[in-house]
């Protein structure tokens, strides 16, 4: 039993990482007010370039860095279109997704000369690492152990990004640009610079997410991001682009995917389980706003009773 729990938690964490990395990358775009819907495309692009990079450099690290850098460049192109040519960010995102789908498929057949998928030697996989001291902590430690280095980086990024956002000058400027562009401009913040940097960092992290997806199973297949970028976008909207809530929301999606895999082993239908995280996302997207709406109604009602009623009663009472 304990074994099963540890296994499930471990699996959940593994499945959380891509969601977490993509949403942390997207955070740098959304927080600065750039409505980047192309996260899925960026991640897919990262998948491809990580595999291609690993193939050509013969080293996993080379592949990871190549993915990060090329995805940053892609994000830079996106940034030029949105910030310099003033293309609507959503439209540009949709174009980017198409381009990423097309370019990965095209280059897969044109450069790597294969169709549908490309498998690397298993020695070129991003392997889990064994951290001895975690092994000794019961349950928690065991579940946390044996993840890929990128997974630990992803978890570390959460507090790091939190500190950047709330303690440093650049993070503060990012938040201000996202909240009120005009105010930021009027106080001398270079909006474009902040957004460029945000998008490039975001692209880099999305590239890492692609590397994690592709290199942990040492292969690339067409469309392997499988809509995770859109889920990450939903995660960001739910978390209001804050790192810690984004971690929690990612855990929710990763956890439910793990549950699906585990439970389908017990004869529960996998397809119906696959819908559950989306239903949860519906609830998380709608409920806060709906309850805020209700709260306003209730507050108004009580305000009307405290303010208006006494005045209207007075003449009658006297």
């Amino acid at each position: 039993m304990q074994e099963t729990i540890i296994n499930t938690v471990h699996l959940a964490l593994r499945l959380t990482i891509p969601f977490l990395l993509i949403s942390l990358g997207g955070l740098f775009c959304l927080k600065t007010g750039v409505f980047n819907l192309a996260l899925d495309g960026f991640a897919l692009f990262g998948c491809f370039t990580s595999v291609a990079g690993t193939y050509y450099t013969g080293s996993v690290l080379g592949g990871v860095l190549f993915a990060g850098i090329t995805t940053s460049l892609l994000a830079l192109i996106f940034a030029v279109f949105v910030l310099e040519l003033k293309v609507d960010a959503i439209v540009c995102s949709l174009a980017m997704i198409l381009i990423c789908t097309g370019i990965t498929r095209y280059l897969l057949s044109a450069v790597l000369k294969s169709n549908g998928r490309f498998v690397l030697e298993s020695s070129l996989a991003l392997k889990p690492i064994d951290i001895p001291f975690l092994e000794n902590i019961p349950i928690v430690g065991q579940a946390l152990n044996n993840l890929t280095p990128l997974a630990y980086i992803a978890f570390l990024l959460v507090p790091v990004i939190h500190i950047i956002l709330y303690k440093t000058k650049f993070g503060f400027q990012m938040r201000v640009v996202g909240l009120n562009e005009q105010a930021a401009e009027a106080t001398g913040v270079n909006i474009k610079r902040v957004r460029y940097i945000g998008l490039i960092i975001g692209g880099f992290i999305c590239g890492l997410a692609g590397a994690q997806l592709a290199l942990s199973i040492n292969m690339f297949n067409v469309g392997m991001s499988d809509g995770r970028g859109f889920t990450a976008f939903v995660i960001l909207v739910m978390a209001d682009s804050r790192p810690v809530p984004a971690l929690l929301a990612s855990l929710m999606f990763g956890g439910s995917e793990a549950a699906i895999l585990k439970l389908s082993g017990y004869g529960i239908n996998a397809q119906i389980l696959a819908i559950i995280p989306y239903l949860l996302a519906f609830a998380v997207a709608i409920l806060p706003l709906a309850s805020k709406h209700m709260a306003i109604q209730i507050k108004r009602h009580f305000a009307a009773r405290t303010y208006i009623a006494p005045i209207e009663k007075l003449p009658g009472d006297e």
Partner: peptide, 24 residues
Amino acid sequence: ASPEIVILVRGFVMLFGTISVLQY
């Protein structure tokens, strides 16, 4: 060339279609 180039063209059409090249 592989037929995937078509998706690429579609993406670029969309990307460039949205900027007013001439007006710029």
